[in-house]
């Protein structure tokens, strides 16, 4: 198996096609035993998800899901989000597919000089009491990812609207949104308990926002001003 360093964990997996290609920046020399060995049953994933176009996509999604479940054992989970780094911190923009996550983060890169951490499924881990965000090979169709990890600065849930506005979400509203875009379909009770514990910690430590936005540059300015604080 090939060795990769993802989210500061030693990961072994044998992959091909798109997964292999997107994992390339994470390849490393094996040092000691792996923390995680990833496998998935491509045939079974195809069977359960007949809408998948081919085995390459099934492997990409199956390995991503396996990694997400394994992360739970390392104080980690993931969020379906486009993540950028600005001033040394990660800002995540999450929403159902098609809302405009990547469109929004492209503005952060162009206007503020932010860089992409991950464009689809960044990993989140609690390391020495600090929530960190990491790039992963599961970085979406444009494969925008950076293998590094930086402290998590904020999470915004995006929705389209007529005006640009941003507000802090109370936990009652934040929980369903976070869960619906994170690890949700777990079969074991212990995994769900762990996921809820991690969600609890994230929601207590990290500012969670709701960003209502038009698809314009002003939306990014409104978001940045609130999420980075006025300096």
């Amino acid at each position: 198996m090939k060795r990769y360093a993802i989210a500061q964990l030693q990961v072994d997996m044998d992959v091909s096609g798109r997964t292999l290609q997107q994992a390339e920046p994470y390849a490393c020399e094996a040092e000691g035993p792996a923390d995680i060995i990833l496998t998935c049953d491509i045939g079974r994933i195809m069977e359960l998800n007949p809408q998948l176009p081919n085995e390459e996509v099934a492997e990409y999604l199956g390995m991503g899901a396996a990694f997400a479940r394994e992360l739970l054992a390392f104080q980690g989970t993931y969020l379906h989000a486009s993540a950028v780094i600005l001033d040394g911190k990660a800002y995540l923009f999450s929403a159902p597919s098609g809302t405009g996550k990547s469109t929004h983060t492209e503005k952060w890169c162009r206007l503020f000089g932010a860089t992409y951490l991950n464009d689809d499924k960044p990993a989140l881990r609690l390391v020495d009491g600090v929530w960190m965000a990491y790039g992963t090979p599961w970085s979406g169709k444009h494969d925008l990812s950076d293998p590094k990890g930086v402290p998590l600065g904020g999470i915004a849930f995006l929705r389209r609207g007529q005006e640009n506005s941003i507000r802090r979400l109370p936990s009652k509203e934040a929980i369903p949104r976070f869960m619906s875009q994170s690890l949700w379909r777990v079969s074991q009770q212990a995994q769900m308990e762990k996921q809820l514990m991690l969600a609890d910690s994230i929601l207590r430590q990290i500012p969670i926002w709701e960003l209502t936005c038009r698809n314009d540059d002003d939306a990014a300015r409104v978001a940045r001003e609130a999420m980075l604080g006025t300096i």
Partner: peptide
């Protein structure tokens, strides 16, 4: 379905087979 507290809010979440079919969350 389990009742749990997350960041001060009570939620009901599914586990097992129910989780695969569930598409919402109750606070």
């Amino acid at each position: 379905f389990l009742l749990r507290e997350v960041a001060g809010t009570l939620v009901i979440v599914p586990v097992g087979k129910a989780a695969a079919e569930f598409s919402g969350m109750i606070t």
